[in-house]
Design a binder for these strands. Structure first.
Lengths: 248, 248
DNA sequence: AATAATCAATTGGACGGACCTATTTGTAAG
DNA sequence: CTTACAAATAGGTCCGTCCAATTGATTATT
């Protein structure tokens, strides 16, 4: 209906098929010939659509085998810019705080309950487990949705992709995850309280506090990490130069 | 060195041609037929290569005209969600206001001068011209850069892509562009004053004012547009039913 | 002379069929 | 049960043809 070139409309259809859950990550898409028949287009168009999806990192084409859906998690940094963990956290601070303020005046009772559920999941999940991280993500995502703005949801998702797909970010966040887990539950609870009270100013302040503390924790962690690395390097150097002095 | 599929190796060659400076941004690449002959491959392969480059945002394909090199600085890749003009403007309000507040305490004198230049460009450009729009974009982009955060720059670019690439948004923004131009220059000047004074609160307030007014203008315009459409429909209906009553 | 309508050349878009190579898989021989 | 091989299946590439959009020059009109 809307796309100018045929292959783009086909690519969108395929993307919809994938995102509807019909083809979970790792599964094979139907063959080019079958898709061509199903969409009533030529094989060339199917190939073009799949190539564009491959360029976007959504599928992986294996010759002689088939086209496979990629977990959007294993995309490499091609589409995302390289940002530091601090930049990301600063942007999350300013963006998500405003989302929270907006959400406070729009949130439904059902969404409040969903938020409660994520906090319970975080409490019962072992620290830094996959489910704990999922609950963290859901908490922030629900708030973005509660702001009633599709662009906000999109940016929240993009921010989360940066957190999980950019190596430098992933590393530093992981280092801070252990000691962070306990604070996180409390802070999420404080944010939830403000949202439940439909208080925009309190929600903004609580979210800012959440990320301010995270930013500090990240700075501490990266400092420790830098020290560790320096120590490793210097001990490696010591070894290296001692060795050469023995050899000499 | 050698990519698995032919189109990828061709895409890399084309990219090298572009990045060598042989085809600066805005210029047209040789036609598919010529490239096919030059690389010794079929037109299909050239098309696939160009499509992958288009998906990555490096070139723009215009049917019947040619393939054009895009500014490499432009954001690439991400598939945009469908957002309304109002959602976009609301997100710009909350996001760019915070960027402005950040920028106020980080901006350099050189960046202040760049901002002044964009305002002069807007004053001298005919309303709603391409250059006027470019100056508008540059104004906001410079502020995002002045915030000293690569993630902010990335999101600013993505927001601008939404404004120019989503049909529904483009339409409503265009409708408001004429009467908006005069206000816009004044408001940009007010924002610049706050930045020049390195006053974060004033910068945030000025930016919020800028987008608040824009949001209202958009609402007015869309209301008028809805009324126009309703009028058109009703007159079409009148014609239709008058005709049938005459026929009957 | 300036402007509007028209037409032809160029360019990307799409089709279908043919043939290639890589991978998978089922079956038969060991 | 394992191995070896061969058909079936999958994507990769080419060719030639035709369509549709764009553009610019040509011509007609005012």
């Amino acid at each position: 209906m809307s796309d100018k070139r045929l292959y783009q409309s086909v690519a969108r259809n395929i993307l919809d098929m994938i995102e509807s859950g019909a083809y979970p990550p790792g599964t094979r898409l139907p063959g080019e010939r079958e898709l061509a028949e199903r969409f009533g287009v030529s094989r060339v168009v199917i190939r073009e659509a799949e190539i564009s999806l491959e360029a976007l990192g959504r599928v992986e084409i294996k010759v002689g085998s088939g086209v496979y859906v990629r977990n959007s998690g294993d995309t490499i940094g091609l589409v995302l810019p390289s940002v530091t963990p601090f930049e990301l956290t600063q942007t999350r601070l300013l963006f998500e705080s405003e989302c929270a303020a907006l959400a406070a005046s729009m949130i439904t009772d059902a969404q409040v309950e969903e938020l409660e559920a994520t906090i319970q999941r975080m409490e019962s999940a072992p620290h830094d487990s996959a489910d704990g991280e999922g609950a963290d993500r859901d908490f922030h995502l629900i708030i973005a949705k509660a702001s009633g703005n599709a662009a906000n949801v999109f940016f929240l998702q993009t921010l989360w992709r940066m957190r999980t797909e950019i190596d430098a970010v992933k590393k530093v966040y992981a280092a801070v995850c252990h000691e962070d887990a306990s604070h996180r539950v409390n802070e999420h609870a404080a944010i939830l309280d403000a949202l439940r009270a439909r208080d925009p100013l309190a929600a903004r302040a609580a979210m800012r506090g959440h990320f301010s503390r995270l930013l500090e924790a990240l700075l501490d962690a990266s400092e420790r990490q830098a020290i560790d690395e320096a120590r490793r390097n210097s001990s490696a150097n010591r070894e290296k130069y001692l060795k050469s002095s023995v050899a000499g």
